[in-house]
């Protein structure tokens, strides 16, 4: 939720700010945007998987942005489109992160449903102890 509110606030601030990026720096901004998006999605994924670490996130955000800036700068100087490397890498990682977030969410949802079912079966079992037939086995979700 914070992420969405943040992006909304950022867009608003960017809209209200009186200046736009000079065309020369548009390349920096576009790659930096991708880097930031990648970091953010990575953080979301890590949080869902319970592996989120604030230091990892912040350091990753800063170092990615820094590396991207260096790549674009050096690439412009050398006449080699090094920023394409960053563009492709972050593009791939964004999709990867999104895919993992999706899977994690689905898995979590399945697990929660299964737990709820187990609990229900348990409580039913406790209510009428005369029941002898065991509940049908629930297939464990596969990733």
């Amino acid at each position: 939720m914070v992420a969405f509110i943040g992006i909304a606030v950022g867009v608003l601030v960017g809209y209200l700010l009186p200046f736009s990026v000079p065309v020369d720096y548009a390349r920096y901004v576009s790659v930096a945007f991708l880097a930031g998006l990648d970091s953010l999605l990575g953080a979301l994924r890590a949080d869902i998987e319970g592996k989120y670490d604030v230091l990892v996130f912040v350091s990753g955000f800063v170092s990615n942005a820094f590396l991207v800036a260096v790549l674009v700068f050096v690439g412009t100087r050398l006449g080699v489109d090094l920023y394409l490397a960053a563009l492709v890498t972050f593009g791939v990682r964004i999709f990867e992160n999104l895919a993992w977030i999706r899977r994690d969410l689905i898995t979590k949802r399945r697990e929660a449903l299964q737990r709820a079912r187990e609990q229900q079966a348990e409580s039913e079992l406790q209510q009428d102890g005369s029941e002898t037939t065991s509940p049908p086995p629930i297939p464990s979700p596969s990733r």
Binding site: I7, V11, G14, Y15, S20, S39, V54
Partner: peptide, 29 residues
């Protein structure tokens, strides 16, 4: 709050500003 809301919020704001600036550049040129 300190570990998640603040850093992620700030990062998102930066992201939004970057996106909007780039958008404006694209629109203006």
């Amino acid at each position: 709050n300190w570990n998640w809301n603040f850093p992620v919020g700030v990062a998102s704001i930066i992201l939004g500003v970057l996106a909007m600036m780039q958008f404006r550049t694209q629109m203006s040129t």
